[in-house]
Design a protein around this nucleic acid. Structure first.
Length: 573
RNA sequence: GCUGGAGUAGCUCAGUCGGUAGAGCACGUCCUUGGUAAGGACGGGGUCACGGGUUCAAUUCCCGUCUCCAGCUCCA
């Protein structure tokens, strides 16, 4: 966001607060900053606000804008400001002032409204020409869930009404692409109340889509020197105690005791399983790096409020690998992981992504020196590859720092998929070793990594990215064969068998519906190609092609269609 | 988990100021054999999320639970 837009939205936030104060004078104000999509203001109202109040607030904002009130900056000493806001019953403002380091604080005034604020602002309220309130939600004071909860009013503002219009159009488009809606209408998956929140049921078409992605993943891993493993979904709790999950991750784990038996834990991560495989045999330095790979299904007891379609679930499958290597191999292994991510993102049609590095959390395992070293290595690799990244302090896993990759979808939204985490701690806790060239035992280091992240989240992202209109190589149904009348069914069946034989995913729509109705259904199902066969095609051995992108392409020889489809699949368009 | 909103047919939704409900799509049967986005007729389908309470009577009012939505916090 540029400075001008920043100024504009910040000013709009003030006007929002001003309008709320006019309507409900006893409302207490917290903060109101501009954000990526607009702005918000956190308030503590006397009575709960609802979406129905937004038009009233907007109308009041309109009056303030009409009045063309100038924004004026002034200064107060800290003490004076604290007293001033206390006297006006604004405890949140007073609390902010108490924590400010400066002796003087900046105050902005427009009309009767006075707010603690560094600015900058536009000159007058009349400069806000396109503003809209969007939604209302809860938010914690200072982002801490132990603090009181405030009401957050979201809005957005632009310089020109046209820009606002475009913004609202993109929001509408995002709604149309919502993977939860498409998941139902394209019959891809369900999440069923009776079965439990956050648990995904893949319907046949969704399962086909997932298998295509799984096949891709397996092939790519094999090609890059990863070895497949398969581990149990359930391990004795002793393992989770040893790995540290019991201490650091228990609230998220499904654990249970059987009568007179052991305690068990359903795996929330695949690492201990892979570690046990490593530990089961003796290793020479010659075997390293050892890259163990599993499409590993894990279960995590996520808080109910965070669940969201496929993007946040309780049971999911990661394309998970643990690379055991010598310390000196870390750099090249990490580079290999980053190259793998780049290649995969390109293949799936994502061109832009954001990289984030997360450092040591407050609750961590191991010692600080190991962490410093690990963070330094991650930094080094990203810098050496010239990849720009943001640092998210304190957001690492409990066993090591990590690099996360957030891919940008077609609507400019980011979703976290790939992750690479460095770990000196678990090899030590499990006493992992390998035999060095000189015959001495040495300790390997581990990289935990996922390329697509979780298949659930990745599929959700793919659905939204393509709006359900998948490129040919991903489409669950690639071709629909539509015989014009019953007389063409034998020929249509031949076409179907020929295409299936070529490895294409084909369905025949021989329902007694009109051609128009069947074309409509195929379009709504977003099937890439329709082959319409009537008397003319049956006699000439051709098919009439109608494609999702190009429309009616006329009659072509069946062989020619197969050739074009093969080409299209190869190009992964 | 928290704040606010919500749960009516497979889907999208209407409705009942307390007297056990309706549309479109989908589904089934029949008619229609159609040339590039909805042919027609008839029909089946609902414990109005679940459990309690109030009431002569609850889908409707009250309480609890589950689930979903928008965020917050957390995360693949």
């Amino acid at each position: 966001m540029n400075d001008d837009l920043h100024r504009l939205r910040h000013s709009a936030a003030h006007i929002l607060a001003q309008a709320v104060k006019r309507l409900w004078p006893k409302t207490k104000l917290a903060i109101g900053p501009p954000i990526e999509e607009g702005f918000y203001y956190d308030v503590a109202p006397e009575q709960p606000l609802t979406e129905e109040d937004l038009p009233r607030i907007e109308a009041e904002m309109g009056k303030i804008i009409q009045a063309s009130l100038p924004f004026r900056q002034s200064w107060m000493s800290r003490e004076a400001a604290a007293a001033f806001f206390n006297q006006r019953s604004e405890p949140f403002k007073a609390e902010i002032i108490r924590d400010l380091p400066d002796p003087k604080v900046s105050i902005y005034t427009n009309g009767e409204f006075i707010d603690l604020c560094e600015g900058p602002h536009v000159e007058t309220t009349a400069q806000i020409r396109a503003v809209k309130l969007l939604s209302i939600a809860g938010a914690y004071w200072r982002g801490n869930e132990r603090n009181p909860q405030l009401t957050r009013i979201y809005g957005t503002a632009f310089f020109e009404p046209k820009e606002l219009e475009d913004f609202l159009k993109v929001r509408e488009e995002a709604k149309r692409r919502d993977h939860r809606r498409l998941g139902t209408s394209l019959r891809l998956f369900s999440i069923l109340e009776e079965a439990g929140a956050g648990l995904v049921f893949y319907h046949p078409k969704g399962a086909v889509l997932r298998q295509i992605v799984e096949d891709y993943s397996r092939r790519q891993h094999a090609a890059r020197g990863y070895q497949p493993v398969i581990t149990p979904h359930l391990l004795r709790s002793d393992v989770w105690v040893r790995s540290g999950h019991y201490e650091f991750y228990k609230p998220n784990m499904y654990t249970f005791k059987l009568e007179e038996g052991q305690e068990w834990g359903v795996k929330p991560m695949n690492c201990p399983g892979h570690i046990l495989i490593y530990k089961a045999t003796l290793h020479s330095y010659r075997e390293l790096p050892l890259r163990l790979f599993e499409l590993g299904t894990v279960y995590r007891n996520e808080k109910s409020g965070v669940l969201h379609g496929l993007l946040r679930v309780r049971g999911f499958t990661q394309d998970d690998s643990h690379i055991f290597c010598r310390p000196g191999q870390l750099k090249s292994e990490l580079e290999g992981v980053l190259a793998f991510v780049q290649a995969a993102m390109t293949d799936f049609g994502f061109s832009e992504y954001r990289v984030e590095m997360s450092t040591r959390p407050p609750d961590f395992m191991g010692n600080q020196a190991q962490w410093d070293k690990a963070e330094e290595i991650l930094n080094g690799v990203l810098k050496a590859k010239g990849i720009p990244y943001e640092v998210s302090a304190g957001a690492g896993a409990f066993y090591g720092p990590k690099i996360d990759i957030h891919v940008k979808d077609s609507l400019g939204r980011y979703w976290q998929c790939a992750t690479a985490q460095l770990d000196f701690v678990l090899p030590e806790r499990f006493g992992l070793t390998y035999v060095e060239e000189n015959g001495q035992e040495a300790r390997p280091v581990m990289i935990h990594r996922a390329i697509l992240g979780s298949l659930e989240r990745f599929l959700g992202t793919l659905i939204e990215h393509y709006g359900g209109a998948f490129p040919l190589w991903l489409a669950p149904v690639q071709v629909a064969v539509i015989p014009l009348t019953q007389d063409q069914e034998p020929y249509a069946r031949q076409v179907l068998e020929k295409l299936s034989g070529e490895g294409l995913r084909v369905e025949m729509d021989d329902r007694r519906e009109t051609l128009q109705a069947r074309i409509r259904d195929a379009e709504l199902s977003k099937i890439p190609h329709m082959l319409i066969v009537g008397k003319r095609e049956a006699e000439s051995g051709k098919v009439s092609v109608r494609s999702r992108a190009a429309g009616d392409r006329g009659a072509v020889a069946l062989e020619e269609f197969i050739r074009q489809a093969a080409e299209e699949i190869r190009e992964r368009r």
